[in-house]
């Protein structure tokens, strides 16, 4: 709902566009390093690397998700603007529903394309974990794959690729099922 803005000046528009777009193009290996330096070396809040406990999950998770947060914020905003002019909103207004209730309806209907985009982002997230695991020294499969590449260990690389392909298919299937649940119109198409 934060992104619900219309009728602003051009200067504001460009500024907001810059703010929204910079996180998308910050290379995540750089963001990870900056986070480690700031929160681990400078302020000593989170551990620099390794995998023990909840505290060491926070930095890698933020690093990985930073790109997607602003992408999805933009996507949902565009959808909400489009949905605002639909008939059901007009009807809801005519019935005299509260503005908050109407916004909730619009929001739920705008999630549809984000869900589809989520299915597309999963492989990118998986590839992203390769870099993040390397920065934060996590013993994950991404790091295993990179080590395998250096050691010319072909079976492990093959297994990694196969696993990723299977995961990709499963994720897409789950997204399809969920979007049919969210929007019954999709399930009835024959």
């Amino acid at each position: 709902m934060v992104d619900w803005k219309e009728g602003e000046t051009t200067r504001n528009y460009i500024l907001r566009r810059l703010l929204a777009i910079i996180p998308i193009f910050m290379p995540n290996f750089w963001v990870g390093l900056l986070f480690i330096w700031m929160f681990s070396v400078k302020f000593n809040i989170f551990p620099t690397s390794g995998m023990d406990g909840v505290r060491s999950v926070i930095l890698p998770a933020i690093t990985l998700s930073l790109t997607y947060i602003s992408t999805y914020a933009r996507l949902i905003r565009n959808n909400m603007i489009q949905n605002k002019h639909e008939n059901y909103v007009l009807y809801a207004r005519a019935r005299g529903l509260k503005e908050n209730t109407i916004h909730r309806h619009i929001f739920v209907n705008s999630l549809q394309s984000s869900l589809t985009a989520l299915g597309m982002s999963i492989p990118k997230l998986i590839a992203g974990t390769v870099i993040v695991e390397n920065i934060f020294a996590w013993p994950g499969i991404g790091r295993l794959c990179v080590t395998a590449i250096f050691n010319r260990d072909y079976p492990i690389i093959q297994a990694y690729v196969l696993l990723m392909a299977v995961l990709f298919v499963i994720c897409n299937l789950l997204v399809d099922i969920f979007s049919a649940v969210l929007d019954p119109r999709l399930g009835q198409e024959q």
Partner: peptide
């Protein structure tokens, strides 16, 4: 997925 494919080819 192209990201995994790049990793596979480089690998």
């Amino acid at each position: 997925p192209s990201e995994v494919m790049i990793l596979a080819i480089v690998g």
